[in-house]
């Protein structure tokens, strides 16, 4: 049991896609103008990650090595399209604010990366857990970055006002703030890692 739990924790902490593996930077920077957008993007990616990990690990022996990349891409793209259709149907507002970044989950290196390094070698159940862990780690990181940017930029947190907007620094919601906030957060993560060792 502990081993199973370890797979999830591994995804959240030791192999956190954003702060440790440094993968999937585009949606990380592009969608985190607010905490809620970050969370939405994280969960959307987690959904695709879990589904594709499951299917790929189920089919891993039926896919010859030489064609594994195209096969994996087809599987991942299918789940992304499923997600796109579902979001259009039931979550139109979130779909609108995440825009282009939903179809771009297909090319998120995390999804293909986990398929190659984990799902292709492990049992279906473990792969689902890995997808869950990595997905949660990604969601947490995006929510954190979104929260920092939203708070510094507009004085709000999840849409609730913390301090007046005029004290906020708009730059954090704009493009440069995304890079700078993420850079500082990764530096912080590095410091914590060194201290923990």
């Amino acid at each position: 049991m502990n081993k199973k739990l370890a797979i999830i924790v591994n995804g959240i902490l030791h192999e956190n896609p954003t702060f440790v593996l440094l993968l999937g930077m585009c949606p990380t920077l592009g969608t985190t103008t607010s905490a809620i957008n970050g969370l939405g993007m994280g969960l959307a990616t987690a959904f695709v990650l879990i589904c594709s990990n499951l299917v790929i690990s189920l089919l891993k022996n039926l896919i010859p090595d030489k064609v594994h990349i195209p096969a994996y891409i087809v599987i991942i793209a299918s789940f992304v399209t499923v997600l796109q259709l579902c979001m259009q149907a039931w979550l139109p507002e979130l779909n609108q604010s995440l825009g282009l970044f939903i179809p771009l989950i297909v090319v998120n290196c995390i999804v293909l990366g986990r398929a190659e390094t984990f799902a292709a070698k492990n049992s279906p159940f473990d792969s689902v857990l890995d997808g869950l862990g990595i997905g949660l780690g990604f969601s947490l990181a995006l929510t954190l970055l979104g929260a920092v940017r939203e708070l510094l930029g507009s004085g709000q947190l999840f849409g609730y006002s913390i301090f007046p907007e005029t004290y906020g620094s708009l730059i954090f919601i704009l493009a440069p703030g995304a890079f700078i906030a993420l850079g500082l957060l990764i530096a912080l993560a590095n410091t914590l890692k060194t201290k923990a060792q």
Binding site: F179, G183, L184, I186, N190, T194
Partner: peptide, 17 residues
Amino acid sequence: KAMKGTPIALITAGIMA
């Protein structure tokens, strides 16, 4: 040490942005 590599690269990118 903590700023080496990606963090400083991101901050530089921010200034470029």
